[in-house]
Each structure stands twice: as C-alpha cells, then as structure tokens.
C-alpha cells in the first residue's frame, strides 16, 4: 500500500514536503494506525502522536485523504490509495503530523470546563435524576481530539477568537448540567460575535467527529438558550 505523508522537520526544513512510502500491511493490521506504526519502524524520523490506539485518548487526529479523523479508528479496508496523510488543517505544525494544540486548549479552558456550584455542600452528593443525567449524553463523550475544530472554516479564519466546535460542545456540556449553577454567566460569556457567533452552521464538525457527536447541535442549543435568556 502506498502512503503519502506530510513531512516537516523544523531543524532542517524551511518548507514542508510530501514523502511517499510503500508498505505491505500484515494480517493483523486493521487500522491506519497499524500501518503508521509499521512505517515508524521503517523510518524512525516519522513523527506522529498516538497513545491508546482505540479512540479514547484522541492523540492521533490527522487529515486522512482530505478529511479529519483518528488513525486508530480508520479502517484500512476500502481505503483509497495512495493514502494521503497531512496534519490537522489550520493548526501550526511542530513536526510532521504533530500540531501545536496550545490555542485549542486555551479555548477549552476559557469556557471553564468544570462544575461551578457555590451552594452549600450537601452531606453526600449533588443528586442528579436519570432524566437530568440523560441530558449529558452526546456531550460528555468528547475526547478533545480537535478533528472538529480543525475541520471548521470559521475556526480556520479566526482561530484566536472563535472558541470552535470542540470548546462550544464542552461549554454546552456544563450549561446542560443540572448541578452547575453558572449557566447565566456561561451564556453571557458566549454572547459574542467571535466566541460563539462565528459559527455559520456549516456542520463540518459533526461530519468528522470520530465519536459521532454533534457539536453543531450543541451550538444550536446554546443559541436558543441565549434567545430564551434575553427574552
């Protein structure tokens, strides 16, 4: 199988280049990450992040044949060749397929991704009904791999000001949490032409989410919550 990979070494290269590899997958190789690991043994200068190899850690997000995805969840079966691998679009490249996620996580931290509740601590726990817990489904599963934000044109044009689909999905996760008491403050923070309203509902985020989540739906709900809040 032929794999064409974006290469950039900041110490020796001034510009990125594409490098072709020919590799024969073996019987146990099921996912794209297996092939990448095999390539790594052939050429140990090839750099990419990976850890859990099963779609939980979110490290091996990359642009695979023009769409963002996790190498560990991308099946080799039926892949179009040559397989073209590039780093996440719009993110600064540190080396090869490794991108700088600093700004991405700064946006994540900006939405205060933790429960805020200043009411007196209950004796045992803050109880949540099954129905209230149900509201967090489709939100809490996000692994922050950045596939969505790095596929969002609005994020490409304003990566420093637009929170992006991943951060907004996380914001809605805490807005929807019955135990959180900072909903009004959270909504007020998001009511900004850049932070939330750069979203044009293109839905590229939902198209590429490897966990099958829908950031565009979360954004839709935030906007409706803001309308209710101000009326």
């Amino acid at each position: 199988m032929r794999v064409s990979i974006y290469r950039f070494n900041p110490e020796t290269d001034t510009k990125p280049r594409m490098q072709d590899y020919d590799v024969a997958p073996e019987a146990g190789d099921k996912k794209l990450l297996d092939v990448l690991m095999r390539l790594k043994t052939m050429d140990d200068s090839l750099s990419f992040r990976r850890s859990c190899r099963e779609g939980v850690c979110g490290s091996d997000a990359m642009n695979i044949n023009g769409r963002n995805g996790l190498a560990c969840l991308t099946s080799l079966q039926g892949m179009k060749e040559p397989v073209v691998l590039r780093p996440l679009p719009g993110f600064p490249v540190i080396r090869d397929l490794i991108v700088d996620m600093t700004q991405f996580f700064a946006h994540y931290h900006s939405i205060k991704p933790y429960l805020i509740n200043n009411e007196a601590l209950p004796e045992r726990e803050r109880v949540q009904s099954p129905a209230e817990r149900e509201k967090l489904n489709g939100l809490y599963e996000c692994i922050l791999c950045a596939c969505c934000s790095a596929f969002c044109p609005s994020f490409w044009w304003n990566p420093d000001k637009f929170i992006g689909p991943a951060g907004l999905l996380q914001a809605y996760r805490f807005i929807s949490d019955s135990r959180d008491t900072a909903t009004a403050e959270r909504l007020a923070y998001l009511d900004d032409v850049y932070r939330l309203y750069r979203c044009r509902t293109i839905m590229n985020c939902t198209e590429v989410c490897p966990k099958g989540l829908s950031p565009s739906h979360a954004i839709e709900r935030i906007r409706l919550a803001l309308v209710r809040e101000s009326s």
């Binding site: 009511d191 803001l226 309308v227």
Partner: peptide, 10 residues
C-alpha cells in the same frame, strides 16, 4: 458594531 446575539437575531 460587533454585537453577538443581536446581529444573529436581526
């Protein structure tokens, strides 16, 4: 000039 929600609603 750069309001958030108001422009979106308008």
């Amino acid at each position: 000039l750069f309001l958030g929600q108001r422009a979106w609603v308008l």
